[in-house]
């Protein structure tokens, strides 16, 4: 079939892995941003791309994770990387709690509710809820992460931390996509009634998609807190959710490679054209309309499933 594809993937991976050797610190930092957005978008892809649930409040889960990590680190001196699972858990549980009553809502109603949740979370953070979030100033003094005795400080070091996480995520999510769980999510997206009729517990799978996607956003939040050492509510506003939504839709909902490509384009391209920085969103808006009119399936749409005859013959699907 397509012999160029594995080669292209290996080439891209090799280029990326050696990128810090020939790029300057600023350029590596841009790659780090792309990596973080890539992680967030891959999490959102589970919800929006695989399960077809319109979530435009992803920044809320990101915020919950980042603030959990920051509070645990600054108050209880827990090393920031150790807070990763807890941040993921907090964001996942938060997502389950907010999604539980609304997950049955149809398409655009869910979209509006998730926008509302995102805004409420942001307002709560600005208003210093529980007296722990530091209000509009946020939380500062988050310690640097430490891995195997090395303090991660420079962009080049963060690069390997962040993109290591991206690589791990890709492997996990590719496996997930092939699993019964992944197929159930796709079924939900394509035809919810038929899925329900075939014995798929739609509420369970929708919530699971929300929880897992949000948990990923939460862990990315912890990475973000570690990278910035200071976080404030402004980093988690509505436009972050819109940008993430856009990345998933433009890239090709449900396709990991497409989502990552879109993360490169949406986050990376504006850095190349810095002199037009103020027109960035204008162009995005236009691109969104044009894409929907001419190529609604995204740049790299998800293809159908392929099963090799050998595995089918052995009786494992």
């Amino acid at each position: 079939m397509n012999h160029g594809k594995p080669f292209a993937i290996v080439l891209a991976a090799a280029l990326l892995a050696t990128a810090p050797l020939f790029l300057n610190a600023y350029q590596v930092d841009v790659l780090n941003s792309i990596g973080l957005y890539g992680l967030l978008a891959l999490g959102l892809n589970l919800i929006l791309g695989e399960a077809g649930l319109f979530n435009m409040g992803h920044a809320a889960f990101y915020a919950v994770g980042a603030y959990t990590a920051a509070m645990l680190n600054t108050r209880y001196q827990i090393p920031i990387l150790w807070t990763l699972p807890l941040s993921g858990l907090a964001a996942g549980l938060f997502a389950l709690a907010v999604a539980r009553p609304v997950v049955h809502l149809r398409g655009d109603y869910l979209l509006i509710v998730t926008i509302g949740v995102g805004e409420i979370v942001r307002i709560a953070l600005v208003n210093d809820i529980f007296g722990m979030t530091g209000g509009a100033n946020g939380i500062f003094g988050i310690s640097r992460p430490q891995l195997f005795g090395i303090v991660i400080r420079r962009p080049q070091e963060f690069f390997y931390l962040i993109w290591g996480c991206v690589a791990l995520t890709i492997v996990l999510f590719l496996r997930l996509k092939q699993s019964r769980f992944g197929r159930a999510l796709n079924y939900l997206r394509e035809d919810e009634v038929a899925a329900e009729g075939s014995g798929i517990n739609t509420a369970y799978y929708k919530l699971a998609a929300f929880g897992l996607g949000a948990a990923w956003a939460g862990m990315t939040g912890a990475l973000f807190a570690a990278k910035m050492t200071i976080i404030s509510p402004e980093s988690f506003n509505f436009w972050e959710s819109v940008v993430l939504f856009m990345i998933v839709i433009l890239g090709g909902a449900g396709n990991i490679a497409g989502v990552l490509l879109a993360a490169f384009l949406v986050i990376g391209l504006p850095e190349l054209f810095r002199e037009f920085a103020s027109a960035r969103m204008l162009v995005f808006g236009l691109v969104m309309i044009v894409m929907m009119v001419f190529r609604p399936q995204g740049l790299l749409p998800a293809g159908g499933r392929r099963f090799s005859l050998a595995t089918l013959a052995r009786g494992h699907g």
Binding site: I249, A279, M288, M291, V293, P296
Partner: peptide, 16 residues
């Protein structure tokens, strides 16, 4: 979804 995304795009465009 396409229409919703297009509407959002239009919103972003007009605003900017």
């Amino acid at each position: 979804l396409s229409a919703v995304v297009s509407a959002l795009g239009a919103s972003i465009f007009l605003q900017n």
